[in-house]
């Protein structure tokens, strides 16, 4: 079985982002970029399935700026087999990405597509769902366990009430949650090998998709600063304070 893993280049999770002074977005100049952490989990899961002999080939794909190549090389160093980069300089919207991925899937015919449940830049949490809809494939989102069995896959999902397991027919779309696995770091020999693994460069036009954004960001603001709290000794005092603050009647 072939597994397709889409990966996104995002601001590193350690970076404290700053809103641009004109409020159009966050400042990305000189900011460290990395693979979206949920996508790392997706790559790791695919590699584990390959190590178990279930997957035969792992293809990683990224849609974004030229430098997304580095993100793909990271995935190749972890253990993916080959990469596809769909180069575009415009802001990638979930639907555009899902449309391109649907075309890639049609070409590659994977048995499973594993994506991160969301990207930590816009936290949209919709690409996987849109992709499943466009392909007409079953989906298992927020996965904390992925167990393929013949032509089916059991996906344990983290839902509000606890865990839910869905049994999907392959091919299927799975999105990863945080607890699915702990991604590995690449070894030095694998980093070296990754340099010569195949990486195909494409454009959205190659897939017949127009990447022009359809959404406009009107304003980006910093979260409001939290002001200092006060300590209360008794419940009565708490109620008193809440009343005074007009929080309760």
């Amino acid at each position: 079985m072939k597994i397709l893993v889409p990966v996104k280049r995002v601001v590193d999770y350690n970076v404290k982002v700053r809103v641009k002074s004109d409020g159009t977005g966050v400042d990305l100049a000189n900011v460290k970029m990395s693979m979206n952490p949920f996508d790392e989990i997706a790559v790791e899961e695919a590699i584990r399935l390959k190590e178990k002999g279930i997957a035969t080939e792992i293809v990683v794909v990224s849609i974004g700026v030229q430098q997304s190549q580095e993100t793909l090389r990271t995935a190749l160093a972890m253990g993916a087999d080959r990469a596809i980069l769909v180069v575009t300089d415009v802001t990638t919207e979930s639907l555009t990405v899902a449309k391109i991925l649907a075309k890639v899937a049609a070409e590659e015919q994977p048995g499973l597509i594993i994506l991160g449940k969301q990207a930590i830049d816009d936290d949209a949490n919709q690409t996987g769902q849109m992709l499943a809809a466009l392909l007409g494939w079953p989906q298992g989102t927020f996965a904390s366990a992925v167990v393929p069995n013949g032509d089916r896959v059991a996906v344990t999902r983290e839902v509000d009430g606890g865990l839910e397991t869905v049994d999907l027919k392959l091919p299927a779309v799975v999105t990863t949650d945080l607890r699915l696995n702990e991604p590995r770091y690449a070894s030095l020999p694998n980093i070296m090998k990754a340099k010569s693994k195949p990486l195909a460069s494409k454009t959205p036009a190659d897939y017949g998709v127009d990447p022009t954004p359809r959404l406009t960001i009107t304003k980006v603001v910093e979260p409001a600063k939290r002001s200092a709290g006060t300590k209360v000794k008794t419940v009565d005092e708490l109620i008193e304070k809440l009343k005074n603050a007009g929080a309760i009647a």
Binding site: S34, E70, R73, T74, A77, Y185, A186, S187, L188, I191, A194
Partner: peptide, 14 residues
Amino acid sequence: HTAIREEVAKLCQQ
């Protein structure tokens, strides 16, 4: 050696 630095950083985070 960006890739090397990144992977060494991940190793160190353990």
